[in-house]
Design a protein around this nucleic acid. Structure first.
Length: 425
RNA sequence: GGAGUGGUGGCAGAGUGGCCGAAUGCGCUAGAUUGCUAAUCUGGUGUCUCCUGAAUUUGGGGACCGCGGGUUCGAAUCCCGCCCACUCCGCCA
């Protein structure tokens, strides 16, 4: 959410930002409603002030005057109530609109309509040339008895899967490696709820807009399954005023993630690329409202993930996500795409977002600065490792000609010192 | 799931219809005192918002005592719903 004062002050910036993101947003309507609401609010305050003054006199007023006083108060109340009802309605409408105003993208965000116009800014590693017929992750994993998509579908429908044997262990190994890497860098490990209230989905910016993407409990419980640990972790300190000494807060959390993938029918149907449930280690940074520092954090959390991929010996590239592919909440986003031989291309495995105070305003997440002034925090997050997709990359990039899987040294430790998984096929 | 108790400022804790944005204590902070520390004394010490002003530090209003409604001229205080915590019983990985 943007500050109404900011929108008032720089309406054109907001409009341009929305245009760059290809998100419809009626700034003028918002400004009109805001102006009306403020005018009415002033009048309401005035009425209330009068009511307060007169009300205080009622008890001590002589009986003769009391009646007149009460009549006057009744009149005030009537006009106040009418005005108040209108005000509430309009404020609700304004708030609804406000929740959908997209954050203004950074200048460094490239112009572009969709992901095809994201700008590659960095490469690491060389995609491997196979001197044998390389298998895709499904063929390889099934041949090794590591994957059962058919039975999983019986349990849970399409886009579900079941890991077995060493691949199941490998998933845990990657997650644990990711956690250890981050803890080694000072991030505080967290185990968090993956079921959150709707309010939390709104606070982190997923709702309104992302409802179709989230699993929601029925009306008995106002709870949603999160699509990422970013949600509970970023919201952890909502409604708090943090002390300057506690900042920056750096958290890392592993969680199950759930996505409905509505609207993705027919897209990435084979294998583990687009699935309803996966494990993910996520990093979140909460700090002071300082644009330069936010940029530093953004680079730092990006670096963490690049380091992880390098330790896993997986070629990747970094893209600067263009306006049209950016979500409403983000100021800027860098995606890391990891080489996946079966796609003969790079597939998104990480997403590093910078929000400024967009989430913090919705969450009422604040801190007290040096001057003692209360201000909204800045928040950022990035994937450290997302299980299903990182497994695709590991399986496909590190397969041997005989169908076994080479383990990078970083993971070997987590797999009992083994350097290779599977049997020769 | 059933029964009960309770949710007040950074914390502890008063307040059961107007004198309460809220006593008191602790903490924090500025100053005084002190050779230093401690102790003591004095002042200050919530958030949001509107109007006004050159000004986030002018002046004046409004709102907030878990959240949302209601009763009343007037609600922290009474009523209803919800959320949360705790205790007992039941069930359970």
């Amino acid at each position: 959410m943007l500050d109404l004062k900011f929108i008032r002050q720089f309406p054109d910036l907001v409009k341009q930002g929305a245009r760059k993101k290809r998100i419809a947003c009626d700034v003028d309507l918002i400004l009109k409603l805001d102006e009306e609401a403020r005018a009415r609010g002033t009048e309401l305050d005035r009425l209330r002030a009068e009511q307060n003054t007169l009300g205080g006199q009622v008890a001590k007023a002589p009986a003769a005057e009391k009646k007149a006083l009460l009549e006057r108060l009744a009149a005030i109340k009537t006009s106040h109530n009418a005005l108040d009802a209108a005000q509430r309605e309009q404020e609700a409408e304004l708030h609804k609109l406000l929740l959908r105003v997209p954050n203004v993208p950074a200048d460094a965000v490239p112009e572009g309509k969709d992901d095809s116009e994201n700008v590659v800014i960095e490469h690491w590693g060389e995609p491997r040339k196979f001197e044998f017929a390389a298998k895709d992750h499904v063929a390889l994993a099934e041949a090794q008895g590591w994957l059962d998509i058919e039975r999983a579908a019986r349990l849970s429908g399409s886009r579900n899967y079941l890991l077995k044997g060493d691949l199941s262990l490998l998933e845990s190994a990657v997650m644990r490696f990711a956690m250890d890497l981050m803890v080694g860098r000072g991030f505080v490990p967290l185990s968090v709820p993956t079921l959150v209230r709707t309010e939390i989905m709104v606070g982190t910016g997923y709702f309104p807009g992302g409802e179709e993407q989230a699993y929601r409990c029925d009306e008995r419980d106002d709870l949603c399954l999160v699509g990422t640990a970013e949600v509970p972790v970023t919201a952890l300190h909502m409604d708090e005023i943090l002390r300057l000494e506690e900042l920056p807060i750096r958290y890392v959390a592993q969680s199950s993630c759930y996505r409905r993938e509505a609207g993705a029918a027919g897209k990435d149907t084979r294998g583990l690329y687009r699935v309803h449930q996966f494990q993910k280690v996520e990093q979140v940074v909460i700090d002071v409202a300082d644009a330069a520092r936010s940029i530093e954090h953004h680079q730092a959390i990006l670096k963490n993930s690049k380091d992880l991929l390098e330790a896993l010996e997986l070629p990747y590239r970094v893209v600067n996500v263009c306006g049209g592919d950016l979500g409403a909440p983000q100021i800027q986003k860098f995606d890391i795409e990891t080489w996946m031989p079966s796609r003969n291309g790079y597939g998104e495995t990480h997403s590093a977002s910078r929000f400024h105070d967009y989430q913090a305003r919705r969450l009422n997440l604040r801190y007290r600065d040096e001057q003692g002034k209360v201000r909204l925090c800045h928040t950022l997050n990035n994937t450290v490792a997302a299980s299903a997709r990182i497994l695709i990359a590991l399986l496909e990039n590190h397969q041997n000609a005989d169908g076994t899987l080479r383990l990078p040294k970083a993971l070997s430790v987590y797999m009992g010192g083994r350097t290779q998984l599977g049997r020769a096929l």
